[in-house]
Nucleic acid binder design. Structure first.
Lengths: 207, 207, 207, 207
DNA sequence: AATGAATGAGTGTTCATTCAT
DNA sequence: AATGAATGAACACTCATTCAT
């Protein structure tokens, strides 16, 4: 988690944006563990052996740190999902691969991606809009994935996407490391959607 | 605001715990609007025309207020869901009615219920465990509702429940008042599950 | 200076706005001695045996304290000047009495009035405008006093007022307690204006 | 901005202490505009495209910068006043010329000179005494100018000087660029002193 | 049942200054 | 001659909480 032990290759060279990255790692972890408001700049600084004031050399405010974490998290999860999707070729397989990658990033791989799900942006802040924008931008992928499916006439693609994304994202509430791995979770959920669950003959339609 | 069946007896002492209820209403609203950490005791007190110190006559701490809001919210949503479910008699209809009631409480009816979804419990606090407990207790209903369904052999009832609950709860992220009403949302999502979405002949099973 | 030892008359009764007044006294003194920016809220609090946060029960911000000091100072000096002026009846005597009272308040009597002269209002703040307004309002008195004089035709009343006020106010730079008292200073300065200083016969006019 | 006669010689090393002068110019401007305490070293550095730490190659502290600004401002205004005075030959004309030059420097020409009037020296600092010393030294000129006047017997030369200097210096409070130019202001004020203002026959003397 | 006044720890942020490079 | 990075102390201000009245 959070590549802190970055095997400092050669000499003791203080690499370029060394500390900024460390700070971001620490912020991502603390934001995820405790939430944005409860985490103080002092907490973050202490984590990397700095004083709180020193953070401001690297970031101009706490909100800007959150934004940076969001952006980094988004870049990361988007890459993973895109790669996973590209490796498959039938629509359902591509969707499932995307879901699996999404879940893996969310549940296991990185603090950054979890922040995106768990931290609701600070209300009044000017960053709030930007954060929601980033999230939308990312989720657009799933719109494409769902649109590519060959569905029966009446199926509502929009709610299919929302149901699936919600089901996946909510996993942070009930998931625990010992349980089914992300791939299994994603597979099972998609399976439920692909097959007919209602065994009664009458079509479930009219309200 | 928010039902709170305060059996208001006829006689001279009509408002047994008047102010406590007002405080709780204010807290629920502010917790929902701004989040738990951003809302201050002063904010809550001001809302009912009190000074912040006076709250402590009614509640022993801010966390205890959150707990009370959770409990009240839970009692409320549980009542609504139970009533809605009782009015139907086929398993799928009962599930859908439960989902509709759940969504309505979540999105439209009461600040109390929304707090349950939007406010993640304060980390270190001793209440955190209790809050999760309450939530589990409530969701147990849906376990029952799903278990009552007549499903095909391979269907995973646990993930069906988690997918559905997640899909519903995540709605607070994308829902906006002008859009489809809760009943429509619930209906559409359940519809997606009941019917076969995969039009290909081969069973979607092997991974 | 600054009526701190207010012979706490009867019992130990914590009189009504006791502490607010103490705080204001301390603020006035420190603002005068060190200037606004250099004085910290901690300094002010320490002076009255409080913690810095406690000030905010009485004042909502540091700027508001400054405003309160200005207002109090202004009320005070205006009262003194008005009373002194009212006791005389020829125009020159009234002007001189006003100047004496102004100087006394400025140099000897109260921290509050000195703040008005020595502290230039914090630039960006919203109070700046209000403070200048108060100052103008006060100085209007002198406009009246000068207008009442029976002057030769060419005399510029506006610059007479500005010269006099400037001469008086600048005294805080060179005044020291052992020297001439305010009454003497005011008398000498006015004297210089009343009499003809230029002994040459030609009128000092054309430039 | 601000004359600073930096005799820029032709050859290859044109800018003997280029950056130091730029820094001083920036400091003078900011000190005048915002005041000493409100101006940060970062502000000054940014103005010349430097980092704040780099200033310390040129100046050993912020206070030293202020001292340098004072000194430069003083040298400048003294030169202007001396030149203006030298061009006249009657005592009153010399005084008026000096006042005009003083006002011009103060109100229009240079940030450096304005700092001398507007910035009150930081209290505790060791520079405070030195700054006052410089100011006295400069004002000594006006002592000479006043002493050269042929005045009536009772006229108090000291207060004449203080009244005049105060009246001039206080102009920074009420002066605004569109109004009368410095020459007019100085002329009017001196005029008021030269002529007899009190039209009553009795000498204004006894206290 | 509530107020007025305060506490004490903590908040995000700013600052003059330092120093190895 | 200047940078990049950091320090450590300070800043104005906020907060949940307490308690005598």
């Amino acid at each position: 988690m959070s590549a802190s032990t970055s095997t400092q290759s050669a000499s003791r060279a203080p690499r370029q944006d060394n500390r900024r990255q460390q700070l971001l790692d620490a912020a991502a972890r603390l934001f995820r563990e405790r939430g944005y408001h409860v985490t103080s700049m002092r907490d973050i600084a202490r984590e990397v052996g700095m004083l709180s004031g020193s953070i401001y050399y690297h970031f101009s405010s706490k909100e800007e740190m959150l934004l940076a974490v969001y952006e980094e998290g988004l870049r990361h999860i988007a890459e993973l999902v895109d790669a996973a999707v590209a490796a498959r070729n039938t629509p359902w397989a591509r969707l499932e691969a995307g879901c699996t990658a999404h879940l893996e990033a969310l549940l296991e791989l990185s603090d950054y991606t979890q922040v995106m799900i768990r931290v609701l942006p600070p209300e009044g802040g000017k960053v709030a809009a930007r954060l929601l924008d980033l999230r939308d931008q990312y989720e657009a992928r799933f719109r494409g994935l769902v649109n590519a499916l060959d569905l029966p006439a009446g199926a509502d693609r929009r709610y299919l996407r929302l149901l699936l994304i919600g089901g996946l994202n909510w996993s942070h509430v009930w998931y625990h490391p010992g349980g089914d791995p992300p791939a299994v979770i994603a597979h099972r959920m998609i399976d439920l959607l692909r097959q007919r669950l209602d065994r009664a003959p009458n079509t479930p339609s009219a309200r």
